[in-house]
Design a protein around this nucleic acid. Sequence first.
DNA 1: CGTGAAATTAGTTGACC
DNA 2: GGTCAACTAATTTCACG
Lengths: 163, 163
Amino acid sequence: MTETPRNGRNAVPLDELDRRILAVLQQDNRLSFAELAERVASSAASCVRRVRRLREEGVILADIALVDPGRAGKSLTAVVNIELEAERLDLVDAFKREMRAAPEVNQCYMVTGDADFVVMVTVEDIAAFEAFTRDRLYANPNIRKFRSMIMLDRVKFEPRVAI
Amino acid sequence: MTETPRNGRNAVPLDELDRRILAVLQQDNRLSFAELAERVASSAASCVRRVRRLREEGVILADIALVDPGRAGKSLTAVVNIELEAERLDLVDAFKREMRAAPEVNQCYMVTGDADFVVMVTVEDIAAFEAFTRDRLYANPNIRKFRSMIMLDRVKFEPRVAI
DNA sequence: CGTGAAATTAGTTGACC
DNA sequence: GGTCAACTAATTTCACG
């Protein structure tokens, strides 16, 4: 019962050792394979093989440094719920492209429910956020309305998957 | 005992080279210092010194592997806007602790505006999400109401800061 | 800040149980 | 899957311009 292949569409079957490896690497990817092997109670060779496979299969998307926005001078984060003018495919695609191109936008999700899109924005201060709404939102005729929620406390930020 | 808010920390002064280094490492932290130096048009020694400093100062919070939730069998992500029963400090702190303890919760922000909290949840499927709402939300007497938005498309996920 | 060299550590590969 | 050994590459430290 340790094996639970899941059926997300492109899900890759992962065994318990894969899961332990991913759990560790999602917290620290700079460990040597020897250290990793110790933490997951396996051998370095096995970790080398598995990590390579997990990268090749796209389970591991990227290996990155996480930067503290505040320390880097971006002290304002906002969650913006956006409703488009119409649910037309061309408008939706155009909007996605704009969000992908906007450097202030860290995350953008198309969603069901009250909004069409949820966008997370990280900028220096309230003036920069005002400029963002003016240049990217008010200026955008595809947007019917949007509601901003300014972050007061980053309670949890763990861009990792519980596996 | 109330928790110390995490924002309001001081920004660290960064020069152009620091910014270029951070921009690269936020996309790939497995480069050798020689490669990094080449990309930022500097020397390996300087990169070594600066990266160590950026880590010590907390500008770089962590170095991690990014896992594709779908490939790892978690094909449902939801954004949940939550309103608490009362804006009492003890209720707020208790809620924060619960969200930090919940493995399905990747991100949790306390916000101004329509909601008190915005929570991002990643689980296997709709059944697991239903279980999450039942066990963590409906079961929670501190929550007055919540609104879920199910992710249809992860348009952009770049947990990095534009610097 | 930059170079280069030496010492140490880590990553890679292949043979083998 | 696991170990071991040998090879290559990267990191660390230091002296120096």
